[in-house]
Structures are given as C-alpha cells and as structure tokens.
Design a protein around this nucleic acid. Sequence first.
DNA 1: GGTTCGATCCTCT
DNA 2: GAGGATCGAACCT
Length: 196
Amino acid sequence: MTILVWSMRASAKKLTIHFYSQPALIVAEQLLGKFLVRRAGKRLIASKIVETEAYVGFRDRASHASRGKTKRNALMFGPPGVAYVYLVYGMYCCLNIVTSRRGYPAAVLIRAVEPIHAKDIRAAAGPGKVCRYFKIDRGLNGVSMVGGLMWVEDRDERLAPGDIVRARRIGVDYAGLYKKKLWRYYLSSSPSVSRR
DNA sequence: GGTTCGATCCTCT
DNA sequence: GAGGATCGAACCT
C-alpha cells in the first residue's frame, strides 16, 4: 500500500501557471480526470475532478464579471492560477480557478469531485458540496493554485474515449443567450456528477 | 440606509 | 417540482 501511494505521488505532476494561462474552456475540459489536492494541517485531501464549468470574459452574463470589476470578482480580472472562492446563497462556498490572462476575466468552477470512499460517492457532487468536503471557505480566496496549500495534479489517469460530456451550465437561467452555452463539462462514467 | 437576489442544497410532496 | 435556509455584495434611493 505504501508503495502504491508513493508511486502515485512520484508520477503526479502539479499543474502549472502555463496550464491555467489557457482559455477557460480548455482548462475546464482538461481539468477532468485531474486531482484536486488540499493540505489541511498535516493531512492531504485529494479527489478526482469529474465536473467543471467555464465562465468566460466580459459578456458572459452568467459570470460575475459581466457587470464589470467589483470588490467580489476582482480576482477574476487578475493573473491565472489563483483560487476565487465566493459565498452563494448565504451559506455555501464555490471554488473557482482563475484562467487565461491578466485583464481578461475568466474562471473555471469546480462543480464535482469523486471521493475515494464509495460510501461518500455523492458527498462532493455539486460546487457547494465540493467546498464542504474539502473544507474550503473564503479564507482560501486568492490563494495560489500552484503553491503548497491547494493545487491540482495530473496522476496520469486515462479518460475513456467519449467519456467527456458538454452541457449547459447549472443555475444560470437568468443569463440570456449565455445560458445555452455548452460550457459545463463532466465525466459521463462518474457516479459523482451533480446532474446529467 | 434599504432592498434584492443569487454559479446551492436539503427536505418535503 | 416547490420552498426554505441564510447573508453579503451589488445596486438602488
């Protein structure tokens, strides 16, 4: 067991600023099958990302950035590879990773991860549940995703052909034309996806 | 200073 | 499918 864990670590590659500098749609799709890792004290929590959404640019009415730069969304306009954590509905947090380039507001929402233990298989099936599962709150707003607190790593998981599904984003019916954009990505084979 | 409303989740029916 | 929990940012006056 120890050897197995060690070998997984050895092959794991932490995603870089170069990766997050890509367009949000690319990052959203490519994050599927990668592992979100968080250091909480001495422990590490790690789970496979199985659902993401992209929020793209100035005109995307589903995005916080569509009404211009504000105190809350300012991180979206900053450099890529940074966590944007905000409170929704007064009681849940959502974790995003800022992408693209400084000055162009774009981010990827982590909507679901797949817990290691089968009994928890739905415990992180939704953006609020991801933050609850990972103990992520607004204290992590603005932290680097390429540092030692929280990051995403590639463990060489192979995705089955055709496993990636594109769909409309959830909870953005107010977004006009942009509610129809297929900017949600998920792994069809995963039991931990929030909705199909 | 007051009002509105969510990038959600859970518990009903 | 509907409704309640709960609160701060954003946008009024």
